[in-house]
Design a protein around this nucleic acid. Structure first.
Length: 516
DNA sequence: GGATCCGTTGTAGCT
DNA sequence: AAGCTACAACGGATC
């Protein structure tokens, strides 16, 4: 008898899942044990643990995965927490007399790779133990293959990405890259093994309780993005499959002001990022859905199109695998050294909690805290504000906040975007392009009305301010502040810095850092 | 080999 | 009110 221990890591889904498909169809496998392991400290590490939205999302994704496995395949998910090596060893040795095959998902992300390296030490533990790995298909490209190819050069632009895609994918008759078909949900007739019983596992109800205890202030469990494959597929249908015009006309830079929904929490984009980062949705499936839409008529092209957005995602994955110290500002040759100010707790806290005195920035940081999501251009604005724009703080501090709070948090992408926005990488935007934290009607974003409403929702103190003053309420005459029922300095903070002056000074400092 | 072009999506001030 | 211009000006690719 061979037991396949199926380790879910980056693909919390039944569709397009190679490891699952193998376990269900291989003749060598007699029974299956699907498992998920929380890293030590992830769920019970106190204040440094994952933020509420992230952990809640994961809990729901696991719950949905479990019910999908039960319904479709007649097996269920076992959840563990702790040092993954210890947990795996216990499971494998617990299964005992049987032959065990650990089937795991491979992905270029370091914490996943490190785990694989550690597994290699295991080969002695038992005659009857072996491992088999499958690509997690977290990306369209095979990152290892591309980075390892002879003529690989680190991509810096969409042109480079087009080159790489042309090299690694065939182009079909309609001019689309052949990225491959997503695998269907497999059939299964194999039972769940019952030999894991010697190891304590967590029930979903345990997770729910731990989350409640860690985040008592969120005990109402309000959460805008529910986790799980079911949600992912439904959102895919509602936001992509059924909205051809939206998909075909998609231009990323325009999306921030095109929110047609009444709910200010609903993204004007697809809102699928969290489902991609958790693997609830396969990137190939999304790519193909967009392609189907493109086949119906004229459509936008990279970089602004949805396909273009996905190609940038691939670019950051390639870079994250080929740049040393990708997540650091030290020893990272894609990061110039900038003489940032020392960690300033007051500034960082004002930024993180949405009390900088700049309503547009504060609104977005409060949205991040509550929903775990923020529009991409909003991320630009707040990261620019924290770093080279106004506060002159090291980008890694902001990266850490995003890492903890973003429901779509993804190591390669989060670091890549901060490197980009802080202006420190070769693929960055020009450093002298500093976003205006007060994008009123004169701004090229030109989103006055939408942003004013957005601010009123997230910064309710300013609800009654006229749009004319809502971006810089401290400039409003006292009489206006009085009639709006919000005195700046008491009911809402004064600006933490003079935005124009700090912009000017920081531009000079940044230039000096570059020249060094 | 020097000139030119280009880079996912800027800002401020003027008309 | 949309559109223009000046701003500041890097570095790698391409011609």
């Amino acid at each position: 008898m061979t037991v396949a221990v199926l380790w879910f890591r980056k693909s919390l889904r039944l569709h397009d899942n190679e490891a699952l498909t193998w376990a269900c169809s291989s003749d060598e496998v007699d029974s299956i044990l699907p498992i998920y392991i929380f890293d030590e400290g992830e769920i019970d590490g106190g204040g440094e643990a994952l933020g509420f939205n992230r952990i809640k999302f994961t809990e729901q994704a696991l719950k949905d995965l479990d019910s999908g496995l039960r319904k479709e395949l007649g097996i269920c998910l076992k959840i563990f927490s702790g040092d993954y090596q210890e947990v795996l060893k216990k499971i494998v040795t617990g299964i005992g007399g049987e032959r065990v095959c650990l089937a795991y998902e491979y992905c270029s992300e370091p914490r996943i790779r490190d785990a694989e390296d550690a597994l290699k030490d295991w080969f002695g533990i038992s005659e009857s133990f072996r491992t088999i790995s499958f690509p997690a298909r977290h990306t369209l490209l095979d990152i290892e293959e591309v980075v390892g190819s002879k003529d690989y050069k680190k991509p810096n632009s969409m042109k480079d990405m087009e080159r790489i895609f042309r090299r690694h994918f065939d182009v079909n008759s309609m001019g689309f890259y052949e990225v491959g078909d997503p695998l269907p949900v497999p059939n299964n007739s194999k039972p769940l093994t019952d030999a894991y019983s010697s190891v304590n596992c967590l029930e979903i109800s345990d997770l729910e309780r731990i989350i409640m205890e860690t985040y008592p202030e969120r005990s109402d469990n309000t959460q805008y993005f529910p986790g799980g494959e079911t949600e992912a597929l439904e959102r895919l249908r509602n936001k992509v499959t059924d909205r051809r015009q939206f998909v075909n006309e998609f231009r990323k830079p325009n999306t921030i002001s095109t929110n047609s929904e009444d709910d200010p929490r609903e993204p004007s984009t697809t809102g699928l990022s969290a489902y991609l980062s958790s693997g609830c949705l396969s990137i190939r499936m999304l790519w193909r859905e967009c392609e189907s839409s493109y086949l119906s008529g004229s459509h936008t092209k990279p970089p602004e199109s949805l396909h273009g957005q996905m190609m940038f995602r691939e670019m950051f994955y390639l870079l994250s695998r080929s740049v040393e110290n990708w997540d650091s500002d030290v020893g990272n040759d894609s990061c110039i050294e900038v003489a940032w100010d020392d960690f300033d707790r007051e500034k960082i806290m004002a930024w993180e909690t949405g009390s900088t005195g700049y309503p547009y920035i504060d609104a977005m940081m409060r949205q991040l805290d509550e929903t775990g999501w923020m529009h991409h251009l909003g991320r630009h604005a707040v990261s620019c504000f924290l770093t080279r724009g106004q506060l002159w703080q090291n980008w890694t501090h902001g990266r850490d906040v995003f890492e903890r709070k973003l429901v779509d948090s993804d190591w390669a992408l989060n670091n890549g975007n901060w490197l980009w926005l802080a202006g420190v990488a070769p693929f960055s935007m020009p450093y002298y392009r500093i976003y205006n934290p007060c994008p009123d009607s004169k701004s090229s974003l030109n989103v006055e009305t939408v942003n004013a409403e957005f601010i009123r929702y997230w910064v309710p103190e300013l609800r009654s301010f006229p749009s004319k003053y809502i971006f810089e309420p401290h400039l409003a005459p006292i009489s206006i502040q009085k009639s709006a029922g919000c005195m700046i300095g008491d009911d809402y903070p004064l600006p933490i810095v003079d935005r124009k002056q700090s912009r000017k000074e920081n531009l000079i400092r940044f230039k000096a850092s570059r020249e060094k």
